[in-house]
Design a protein around this nucleic acid. Structure first.
Lengths: 155, 155
DNA sequence: CCGTGATTTCAATATTTATTGAAAATTCTG
DNA sequence: CAGAATTTTCAATAAATATTGAAATCACGG
């Protein structure tokens, strides 16, 4: 960590703290925050380790996690043989699709519950029927959001 | 843990495992799962501790968490002086409102980032402008979902 | 295909978080 | 309001997870 500490570094730390609040590891959050404000908008693993004061190993782990979530993508920089990473444009919209996926998982969980309660009285089954009904509705709504964005975009 | 182990207990454990997959504590998940399939649909803390084989302290902690998330509510049972808990009907729909809240938080984070980049070139600011734009859209969509449900319901 | 620099892996460790259980507090009812 | 039953609190412990850093692997340019 050689360069001076700036408001950008603070910003990265705050996004890291925000991540922690959701039970997610702090370092990927700090990297995401840094990639939102760094200059240039793409960075090498070594730059990230240096600027954020974390080990290269941690950066490697974090990049893998961020990549799995489609938050970042590799970018080639002319004149450098190093990997560079930047935020994946459009990433933020993915969360709607992710929610749709989770809703569909809950529909399955509800259905499995209804199997368990196959012989139970209707008033016992109602809890799970309600859950299934609501998640079916939610899945539809979440699935629709991305499409809507691009339609609204065209104007 | 005296009564025999049934498919309902397995179901509770599976919901607990599902919770764990999201980095959430397992016991609240198991309780949620149990409350989806137990008979009757409301249970005392002691029943929960007994059926799931966890300490009363853990049940107390878990109920507090579930209550904070509006997942459960107290219910009075005639002839028993004990507290009883059941799933809060309609709970599943809340997640849309929760997502709306998170989206609004991200809008603020993006705005703070734009302050940090006040003097940065437009191409640097673009990342955050995109994030703000998308979360503004997402917040609107999420906010609309609950309303839609009740409209669609009336038919 | 060798050498060098960049990246990843993974065992060890530090840190955080979940869970227990006994003691304290609370809440009913008689 | 006393006494008993129920619930909550919280310090101790167990369990899980994040982070490091040195060694291994990889990938590129000569």
């Amino acid at each position: 960590m050689s360069g001076e500490r700036t408001a950008r570094h603070d910003y990265a730390d705050e996004i890291g703290a925000y991540f922690e609040g959701f039970g997610l590891p702090r370092i990927p959050g700090r990297i995401l925050g840094w990639l939102l404000v760094c200059e240039p908008p793409h960075q090498s693993p070594e730059q990230l380790a240096e600027e954020l004061g974390v080990s290269r190993g941690s950066v490697s782990m974090a990049m893998r996690m961020l990549q799995r979530n489609n938050a970042v993508e590799r970018v080639t920089v002319p004149g450098s043989r190093r990997t560079h990473w930047r935020l994946r444009p459009g990433f933020w919209l993915d969360e709607a699709a992710e929610k749709a996926k989770q809703a569909r998982e809950w529909i399955k969980q509800a259905e499995r519950g209804l199997d368990v309660l196959a012989d139970a009285p209707p008033e016992s089954r109602r809890r799970l029927e309600e859950a299934k009904e609501m998640y079916t509705f939610l899945a539809e709504q979440y699935e629709h959001i991305e499409t809507l964005w691009y339609e609204q975009r065209k104007k």
